[in-house]
């Protein structure tokens, strides 16, 4: 199963590198949304709370552009049936999850670099806290996005539905990471955010565990 998982993730990676659709969409989304924020702000100084909120808003909505496509692509190309035949459903789930994790981490890195350039107030004062937040946040984000994307792939009106379905699921994660990111920008101690990390860790375990159990019901017709 582990071999199959990696095979599916590398298949997605290779087909992504051929077209670069998702990566381009993600990066352009990050650039355009940051540009919009800059248009609105002009010379205003913004607080770290606002910045960390904006940062995750960009990540959340960029996720709609890229992460939600992961199963829709299979249905549109008509390859979902083949995938159902050749791989076990848990391998499909974990392969897609792995690929979505990669995408999210890339997205978060791009957003971080762009924020560092664009906003003089965006200074990471405690790097370890920021790195841990962003890493755990990406994993949780990818975990929720994968299972929602699998549901959305079966429905009509796929684009808008993803945002509607994912927000209530992602809200506990978003609230926690926004708070922790603001703490990292303000230079708080790593140990001050241990409670938040427990929430993030619990969230990731709960979502991945349940998705693993329920994925069969979504994937198999």
């Amino acid at each position: 199963m582990i071999v199959q998982t990696f095979a599916i993730a590398s298949k997605d990676l290779r087909s992504e590198l051929r077209t670069r659709y998702a990566v381009n969409a993600l990066l352009m989304f990050v650039v355009t949304s940051v540009a919009t924020i800059l248009f609105a702000l002009r010379e205003d100084r913004v607080s770290t709370d606002v910045l960390s909120g904006m940062y995750w808003v960009v990540v959340f909505f960029s996720g709609t552009a890229g992460l939600s496509r992961i199963f829709v692509g299979e249905e549109e190309r008509g390859t979902a049936l083949t995938l159902r035949l050749i791989a076990s459903s848990s391998a499909v789930y974990f392969g897609k999850l792995l690929f979505n994790c990669l995408q999210t981490i890339l997205l978060v890195l791009a957003a971080t670099v762009l924020y560092l350039i664009a906003f003089p107030e965006f200074v990471i004062r405690s790097a370890a806290l920021f790195a841990a937040t962003v890493f755990l946040g990406s994993l949780g984000f990818a975990a929720a996005a994968t299972i929602i994307a699998a549901i959305v792939a079966k429905a009509q009106a796929k684009g808008t539905l993803y945002t509607v379905l994912s927000f209530p699921i992602l809200a506990p994660l978003l609230l926690t990471v926004i708070q922790t990111t603001a703490m990292a920008l303000d230079g708080a101690e790593f140990s001050a955010a241990l409670g938040q990390f427990q929430i993030l860790f619990g969230y990731i375990c709960a979502v991945v565990g349940l998705s693993f159990i329920l994925f069969d019901y979504i994937w198999k017709d």
Partner: peptide, 27 residues
């Protein structure tokens, strides 16, 4: 919103059950 976007009765029942369970662990 999810229920209204799914045409087939069986898939609608199944996916909305799955969604409510995922929401049930995050809520």
């Amino acid at each position: 919103a999810l229920r209204s976007a799914l045409a087939s009765e069986e898939i609608r029942a199944r996916l909305s059950a799955v969604y409510s369970m995922i929401a049930g662990v995050t809520a």
